[in-house]
């Protein structure tokens, strides 16, 4: 199947509100003990507008927005054949509780390795806050077996 035609496909924009309790729960689950991630006054004293999102939380924003599997669904690939191969983040500004984050996903590359036994799908999402400031760019590589 010719998957290359999906390169440059862009998905509908999404908007997610970043909730304080959710950030506390995330920080608790990863064993993060710095009080800036649970106590708003500590966060403000450290210069944040509210509790900041830990570095990898931006990926959860994209999951909440249903962006993790839309490319696979488009391409007719079963989720169980796919694994998360690589994840990257570029940071421009902190994401904090109360922020309303807007993003849009684009498939930026699709290529094969091992004579087609492995298919790599590269997706990028940029996230901006309610002030239209770029906060984070994510790049995800999904690896699909036996295509």
């Amino acid at each position: 199947m010719d998957y290359k035609k999906y390169i440059n496909k862009t998905y509908e924009p999404f908007t997610i509100e970043v909730e304080k309790g959710r950030l506390r729960a995330f920080a608790g689950a990863i064993g993060e003990q710095d009080p800036i991630f649970s106590d708003e006054s500590s966060a403000k004293a450290a210069g944040y507008t509210s509790i900041p999102a830990p570095l990898t939380f931006a990926f959860s924003i994209t999951m909440d927005a249903g962006q993790s599997f839309n490319a696979l669904e488009d391409m007719g690939i079963q989720k169980t054949k796919a694994v998360h191969g690589e994840q990257g983040f570029k940071y421009y500004k902190a994401i904090c509780a109360g922020d309303v984050v807007t993003g849009q996903q684009k498939i930026t590359d699709i290529y094969e390795k091992k004579g087609g036994a492995l298919l790599f799908i590269v997706m990028e999402i940029s996230l901006s806050n309610q002030l239209n400031e770029l906060v984070c760019e994510l790049q995800s590589t999904i690896v699909v077996r036996n295509t």
Binding site: V83, G85, E86, F89, Q139
Partner: peptide, 13 residues
Amino acid sequence: LPQTAVRSFKSRF
């Protein structure tokens, strides 16, 4: 380091 010092971060699984 403070989290604001981090400009980029990536990992392969």
